[in-house]
């Protein structure tokens, strides 16, 4: 690497160079970007091993500020669609992704091998991306769903929804939230939730809400990989060693009572399906049954004949009724954000 001789002061690359369309207050960035003209280089040099990149001034922008993930996307709600119901629906889809993403991310550095550690982190990242878009869409449709934060807080709406709602305000199904068990437990949970999600997103591509349709079209491609991954591991564990099969069967037995809930319809889902905006999960039951049947058969596993975990007074995860596991998970997930509601990162 060669650097041009330059006696001028190092260029400032901080908040004064943020997008002018999205002005950022001074001091928002956590650190100033490294100065590429410094002779001793910086810790980032190793990342830029290609000669056509090193010294490329415009590349020095590693500090990133908050941004609107829907910048430039038309988030106008169709005239005849109830905006608050649309927001509630987006929270349901978004919270499923958010909570499952967090459970998967808990495997970071703990998976059985490096490849699966990376695979689970990749899947978690895809789901977090979907969650971010869906929570941002909920906030754009109905700003009143966003928890109030202190004046001057830089926390964007989707982060406020992720980090400043209590368990009772989350709308995810309970299957997404129960605490991690062993790897087989994660495989079974991911298989069922990815199967339902792929079937729902596949139909949501035709949503009358163009934002939901676009999020779904991207999600279909991603969740296809997630479902295949989980399906292959399900069969591998089921047909592997005596121990792997024992663990898989135990996971199936433990989780199956929770597998009915994602197929039950909540009134918001029904209303949004009727409006041509959402999907009634009851509609995907046959497809989900067929896919799960295929995996169970390939693994030589009988479909458990167990009763679904009941709600309380008819309320389940979609109503904000959760297991204790979600509160514990949120306590860890939200603690830093809640400690610094006006924090700038």
């Amino acid at each position: 690497m060669s650097t041009p001789p330059d006696s001028s002061p190092p260029p400032l690359r901080s908040s004064d160079e943020q997008s002018v369309g999205d002005p950022v207050p001074d001091g928002l960035m956590s650190h100033s970007a490294p100065d590429p003209s410094r002779v001793e280089g910086s810790v980032y040099d190793g990342l830029l091993e290609h000669h056509d990149v090193v010294g490329d001034d415009a590349r020095w922008a590693f500090g990133t500020a908050f941004e609107d993930p829907l910048a430039g996307v038309d988030t106008t709600v169709p005239d005849d669609v109830d905006a608050s119901a649309l927001a509630a629906y987006c929270l349901m889809l978004g919270d499923d992704a958010l909570v499952l993403s967090h459970r998967l991310s808990e495997w970071c550095s703990r998976a059985p091998d490096l490849e699966d550690d990376i695979a689970l982190a990749n899947i978690a990242l895809d789901l977090l991306g979907q969650a971010r878009l869906l929570l941002a869409r909920a906030a754009a449709a109905d700003p009143s769903v966003v928890p109030p934060l202190p004046e001057g807080s830089p926390v964007p709406a989707e982060d406020a929804l992720a980090f400043f709602r209590d368990a009772g305000e989350l709308r995810n199904v309970r299957l997404a939230e129960v605490a991690n068990g062993d790897f087989a437990h994660t495989v079974v949970r991911l298989l069922v939730l990815a199967t339902v999600r792929l079937a729902v997103l596949g139909r949501l591509v035709g949503s009358r809400d163009p934002v939901l349709a676009a999020i779904a079209a991207k999600g279909v491609k991603e969740v296809t990989y997630h479902r295949d991954y989980a399906g292959r591991w399900f069969v591998t564990l089921a047909q592997g060693t005596e121990e792997s099969r024992r663990r898989l069967l135990a996971a199936v037995a433990e989780l199956w009572p929770l597998c009915e809930e994602p197929l039950q319809v909540h009134e918001t889902e029904r209303a949004m399906a009727r409006a041509g905006v959402g999907v009634d999960p009851g509609e995907v039951r046959d497809e989900v049954d067929a896919v799960l049947g295929q995996v169970l058969a390939a693994g030589g596993v009988d479909r458990p004949d167990v009763a679904a975990l009941a709600g309380v007074g008819g309320r389940t995860g979609r109503h904000g009724l959760h297991t204790e596991a979600l509160s514990r998970m949120l306590a860890e997930m939200q603690v830093v954000a809640r400690a610094h509601p006006t924090g700038r990162w």
């Binding site: 690359r13 160079e17 943020q18 997008s19 002018v20 369309g21 999205d22 001034d57 415009a58 590349r59 020095w60 922008a61 500090g63 990133t64 993930p69 829907l70 910048a71 430039g72 996307v73 878009l133 163009p210 934002v211 349709a213 676009a214 999020i215 079209a217 991207k218 491609k221």
Partner: peptide, 23 residues
Amino acid sequence: DDLVHRLRDAGYAARVEVALSPA
């Protein structure tokens, strides 16, 4: 950020929008 900086360096005020569709 890279796009905004590259264009800023060339004298253009720029902002970046996201297109979600087609994926």
